[in-house]
Design a protein around this nucleic acid. Structure first.
Lengths: 123, 123
DNA sequence: TGCGGATATGAAGAAGTTGTCAAGTGCTAA
DNA sequence: TTAGCACTTGACAACTTCTTCATATCCGCA
């Protein structure tokens, strides 16, 4: 069965559409990590992490390999890093627009993102 | 209230995670279009289209303007186009890997995307 | 062989998303 | 002022996704 490309794209983006999965990808984009190392860096239950890893694995975005008693994960598609950076750029663009609008209108609506300027990929 | 960036990113990707919304963005990436023109090109109920447009509007990805009795939509963030192209590239990369694997294993599992090589953004 | 640490899997209720139908609103023109 | 397109909105059942809990599995070591 052939999936139209726009459907596959949507599915792909939905795979990225979860905070924990984003963090996992960002962390793995820097280096291979064991599950317990991810666990140290992400606030999430072990079983939940395992499930999110499974989602990314099924999508083919990360790979698993065993080393003794631990399991190491790595990004399998480096371009994902570019995608995350592009998303970051767009997001800040959107935020700026909104702030601009707010200034123009003089409206007091807050609610934004963390400011830019963080190093690395910025989580 | 401040939203951590990884959360905002996830939300952003979720916004893209719908076939109709992908098509809308791809079509609008080429030119401004009225709702009924989108309707001609996407197989979807008017009310459903309206809702998907509303989702994209709320996310700040598209803008609306009225012209007589019709409503014209346009992309408000051109970089989205790059993002879609990047996604397309990654998707074909994943597909190739899977095909490679299939050949290596000699397994007969089909199910893929439309082939590459389409012009434009490729829906 | 049996334990404990490191992960994975399954199941189930809560929460969120989608498509559709019915009922609006806005604008143009008769 | 009313008919009729062009869209939008609200509501709700059907579905999907999330989180959590309980239960496995796999491995290295005593």
């Amino acid at each position: 069965m052939t999936v139209p490309l726009y459907r596959a794209k949507a599915e792909f983006f939905r795979t990225l559409g979860h905070p924990a999965r984003i963090r996992i990808l960002e962390l793995l984009a820097e280096q291979e990590l064991a599950v317990h190392e991810l666990l140290d860096r992400i606030e999430i239950e072990p079983s939940n992490l395992s499930q999110q890893l499974a989602v990314l694995r099924r999508a083919g975005l990360i790979t698993q390999r065993r080393s003794g008693s631990q399991v190491l994960y790595a990004i399998s598609v480096q371009e994902v890093r570019d995608l995350l950076i592009a998303a970051r750029r767009i997001l800040f663009g959107l935020l700026e627009d909104r702030e601009q609008l707010r200034r123009d209108l003089g409206s007091p609506a807050p609610s934004g993102l963390d400011g830019p300027g963080a190093p690395g990929l910025g989580s």
